[in-house]
Design a protein around this nucleic acid. Structure first.
Length: 927
RNA sequence: GCCGGGGUGGCGGAAUGGUAGACGCGGUGGUCUCAAACACCAUUGGGGUCAAACCCGUGCGGGUUCGAGUCCCGCCCCCGGCACCA
């Protein structure tokens, strides 16, 4: 019998036995509860699996294995997110077809996952590029289309000049393409979108129903970006137009015109009247509006340009041209000074009746709200910067609450007379006391007509109602979320099942003709003109439409996130050729009970999958409205990466302080020339540690256990192979312990063991066993795998200690030891399944631990029969005393006061108070 | 700037308001060995002492409490996300 952990002697043996027995094929047995545990759909990269991936897969495996042993039907699938840019780019580089390449890579991933003993049900596996899968991705696209949730429009999109494709907002980081690192350009192309904005509110609301990390929920709420405010219309007024008249609070627009006419002013006819809408979350500051700003792309700007004098018109056009040239990155750089020009036109503030100049400036985004704002420089930092730069009026209309600011004296920055051109002088009024801009909301309105003196909250309510009554606007909820751009002008993706028929009519490909196969061609590199490679394949493009006429296929493919938005449903019923899934089967397994992956997908995959799930629910195809009940994010595993000190003037990588070198170079350089840095494992950094190499040196179980033990599950880890030695040593200690106890092991202990005749060591051993069962189980459930492992270590240490103290083991002790051995092996099984099965067979048990019942604990056995009571004097620990578990307050206090150490500290003092926490602590307060 | 998560020994990290530092790594001393490695045993927050007693200790400053790593208020620092979103 082995008394140490020798992984090479048994790990592959057990892996073979598991495979031969189809051990991990999903069971769907009557009367068992279900558990659906899943990892994020990986893209199988050529670099293969790193220990970082394993940090994702091992914990999920642990919880799934435990659930299996606890009697659940467990669904634990794995598949591959095969479509997408990374695969296609690499395939082009390697001059190999992406399909063949992905097959190789996926096979390698599977091999590595098997190597570390992950319990995936491979019979359910698929790749998103399998026609039998993407057929149904297309089918879901058609559902979206029919529900009005998929549409095509001309859009300025994020164009990646390196990958030669369009990207989603989410794929851009700081103005650069996340994948290629290229600076994103603007390009106008007809694009397909999914109308995720229709679901914005539900996507916010239902976050309350799922058990996800707070950070991810917050990121999603942030990304959706709900704002409550008021949207209202403002009239444009030109030089020479009649002065607007004062509008009483309850005047409608019609009445306003009638009044103007009566007063002898020219009434602007409907055709000549221009207006635009603004959205604001601070309607309470409307009296502080001193100018308006339109995005340069705003539709009304061209019309204004034709109506103002030539100089202003020219200013507008040249600014528009400049804005068009600027990339979004340059435009949105926060450090950039504000730019803009006065249009020569004015807008009429509906609250004050005053005319304010209209400017165009690129700090106002065309894509948010109405693309136009009322500018309140006294209470908005961006408007303030703009006002200072162009010397525009700044007016204070909110005073900090509690300040001595009087409504009458509230003036802020304000010119002395109404001006109609763009060069006012700035003057600070004596009455202004607050530091401007004052953006806080706990304030009182000043300088705001009849609203002066109201709180911000009241004024928002009152002015909102007034705007609505006036009929020029309404209270509105605005979201930052944009529709999901799915078009990709690339080959390696799921074709969009649409035909462009005669007269530009769009037709869906009928269900019976799905899937639209991705043609198998040799050349699929992007043309570089924004068209898809598919557009250059006549056999693919030319089709007959529904009515037998000639039509052309849509040649865009869907971005990869479409494929990963429903794969969890396909796993529930992966082999059905007639349906994407059968509802009763999907309803049995869904939702995913535990979904595990990296936090980097917080606003992409996780939002899209939630959206599709809701649509499919609305379509009546599934019961759930949320796909993932519980979400957990593992921490990253960082690899050590060598850099050398840069030569003077040498170009450094983004965020780096040295020049990346290889490990070989690092060895050659003198030690003080090498800078070691920790970074995410990647092929390009050359710092990937594979499970293959760690397994070879230390064994799969030692690796698994170390991954669990090294840090809390969601914390980042700086990887070192040496750490694995610790868990390897621990496994050896288990093997030795089991070998030591083997002589007294009784297979039938269960029917014989009883508490009555137990002696002291037996009682202690059982207590230790049952405490460990309780804690290990709870810790796995709570994703505290590091403490799960440490409880097992503590257990083993404790049993060794007892062993050392027992000279002549009693029968009761032998039975308790038998229970301890079996419990230990079974508790170890999810973490180190190979060793567990090996030990199981060594003690003469047949079969697999995977099919054994998870140990349960008996609370009465887990409780101590003596307790250690901490005795404090004035809150400081002075002594500890052993008492029977049933000790009462009186006894505990008496014993405490009898302690010599306690007496030394209360001597000469009066006892003021005595605190007793049952079974735990006594605190004597004396002075 | 806004949102989220964190600051505990030499290191990774444990601690339902109740004995801070579990468990492991590393270190030190020892056993085994011709020797080394492995393994095993002991010890290991700082100060103090022959040993103890005792004192100090969870980023900083206050507070609540018999008692605070944990709760409250105000700061500092680190990590992640978003960022001219009106």
């Amino acid at each position: 019998m082995a008394d140490r952990y020798e992984p090479s002697s048994f790990e592959s043996k057990w892996q073979k036995k598991w495979a031969d027995a189809d051990l991990f094929v999903t069971r769907e047995e009557e009367g068992r509860p279900k558990f659906y545990g899943m990892d994020f759909f990986p893209y199988p990269s050529g670099a293969g699996l790193s220990v970082g991936h394993c940090r994702n897969y091992v914990p999920t495996d642990v919880i799934c294995r435990m659930k299996m042993m606890q009697g659940y039907n467990v669904l634990h699938p794995m598949g591959f997110d095969a479509f997408g840019l990374p695969a296609e780019n690499e395939a082009i580089k390697r001059q190999i077809h992406p399909s063949a390449m992905i097959d190789q890579y996926a096979a390698n991933y599977k091999r590595q996952m098997d190597l570390i003993g992950i319990s995936y049900d491979w019979s359910r596996s698929f790749k998103s590029s399998d026609p039998s899968y993407y057929k149904w991705t297309q089918w879901v696209f058609e559902i979206l289309y029919k529900r009005g949730l998929a549409y095509r429009k001309l859009a300025a999109v994020n164009w990646d000049p390196v990958d030669k494709t369009v990207l989603a907002d989410e794929e851009i980081v700081a103005g650069r393409a996340e994948r290629s690192g290229a600076i994103v350009e603007k390009k106008w192309i007809p694009q397909w979108f999914f109308k995720i904005t229709d679901y914005a509110q539900r996507l916010i609301d239902d976050l309350d129903t799922v058990d996800w990390p707070d950070g991810i929920k917050a990121q999603q709420r942030n990304w959706i970006g709900r704002s409550e405010g008021v949207q209202f219309r403002m009239r444009v007024s030109f030089e020479g137009d009649p002065q607007p008249i004062e509008a009483p609070a309850d005047t409608s627009a019609l009445e306003l015109n009638q009044a103007a006419e009566a007063a002898g002013f020219e009434v602007v006819t409907k055709e000549r009247e221009l207006s635009f809408e603004v959205f604001t979350t601070r309607i309470d500051t409307i009296f502080g509006m001193t100018f308006c700003v339109l995005a340069p792309e705003h539709a009304i700007v061209d019309q204004i340009a034709t109506r103002v004098d030539a100089i202003h018109g020219e200013n507008i056009r040249s600014y528009q041209a400049e804005a068009k040239m600027l990339s979004d990155t340059d435009r949105q750089a926060t450090t950039r000074e504000k730019t803009g020009v006065f249009t020569g036109a004015f807008a009429v503030n509906p609250a004050s009746g005053e005319r304010v100049p209209i400017w165009i400036a690129d700090y106002v985004l065309a894509t948010y709200g109405t693309g136009a704002i009322m500018a309140v420089p006294g209470h908005d930092v961006r408007d303030f910067e703009f006002a200072r730069k162009f010397e525009l009026d700044v007016l204070q209309v909110i005073a900090p609450s509690g300040s001595a600011f009087q409504a009458e004296s509230a003036v802020g920055f304000r010119p002395t007379e109404q001006r109609q051109d763009a060069a006012p002088t700035l003057r600070r009024d004596a009455g202004a006391t607050a530091e401007l801009p004052f953006e806080a909301k706990d304030g009182i309105l000043v300088n705001s007509g009849e609203y002066s003196g109201q709180t911000v909250k009241d004024a928002q309510q009152g002015l909102g109602e007034w705007i609505e009554a006036l009929g020029i606007g309404e209270r509105k909820i605005q979201y930052r979320l944009r529709d999901w751009l799915i078009s990709r002008q690339r080959y390696w993706g799921c074709p969009i099942p649409v035909i462009h028929a005669a007269e530009g009519e769009l037709q869906l490909v009928p269900d019976r003709d799905l899937p639209v196969y991705l043609p198998d061609v040799a050349n699929y590199e992007p043309a570089g003109d924004g068209s898809s490679p598919l557009a250059h394949i006549p056999d693919f493009v030319n089709v007959t439409d529904r009515d037998g006429r000639l039509g052309k296929r849509e040649t865009d493919t869907m971005g990869g996130f479409a494929c990963s938005s429903w794969y969890f449903l396909r796993f529930t019923d992966p082999h059905d050729e007639e349906h994407a899934w059968k509802r009763e089967i999907a309803d049995y397994w869904m939702p995913v009970d535990c979904y595990v992956g990296g936090a980097e997908h917080a606003v992409m995959h996780l939002l899209y999958a939630r959206f599709w799930t809701k649509v499919l629910h609305d379509e009546g195809l599934i019961a759930v409205t949320e796909p993932f009940q519980r979400l957990e994010n593992q921490g990253q595993v960082l690899g050590q990466t060598p850099y050398r000190k840069p030569e003077p003037g040498e170009q450094l990588g983004l965020g780096e302080d040295g020049i990346l070198i290889s490990f070989d170079e690092a060895k050659k350089l003198p030690k003080d020339q090498v800078l070691w840095r920790w970074s995410r494992m990647s092929k390009s950094k050359g710092n990937v540690v594979t499970p293959d190499e760690v397994k070879k040196q230390y064994g799969a179980d030692a690796l698994r256990l170390y991954l669990l033990f090294v840090a809390p599950f969601n914390a980042d880890v700086e990887w070192s192979n040496e750490g694995t030695q610790g868990t390897s040593r621990f496994l050896s200690r288990i093997f030795r312990l089991v070998a030591d106890l083997q002589p007294i092991y009784e297979k039938d202990w269960k029917g014989l063991i009883g508490f009555e005749e137990a002696d002291e060591p037996a009682k202690k051993l059982r207590r230790l066993t049952h405490q460990t069962i309780q804690r290990a189980t709870e810790d796995i459930e709570r994703f505290q795998f590091n403490t799960y492992v440490s409880w097992l270590m503590k257990f083993v240490n404790g049993v060794y200690d007892l062993q050392g103290s027992v000279k002549q083991p009693s029968r009761a002790y032998a039975l308790a030891a038998s229970e301890a051995i079996e419990s230990l092996i079974l508790l170890l099984a999810p973490g180190s399944p190979h060793s567990a099965d090996e030990l199981w067979s060594q003690i003469g048990r047949k079969g697999f631990t995977y099919l054994e019942a998870w140990p349960t604990f008996d609370p009465s056995l887990a409780t101590e029969d003596t307790v250690t009571i901490a005795v404090q004097v004035n809150g400081k620990l002075r002594d500890t005393i052993e008492m029977p578990a049933q000790v009462n307050q009186e006894q505990a206090l008496a014993a405490s006061k009898a302690s010599a150490k306690v007496q030394a500290h209360v001597e000469g003092k009066t006892i003021r108070k005595e605190i007793y926490i049952p079974g735990k602590l006594v605190n004597i307060v004396a002075s």
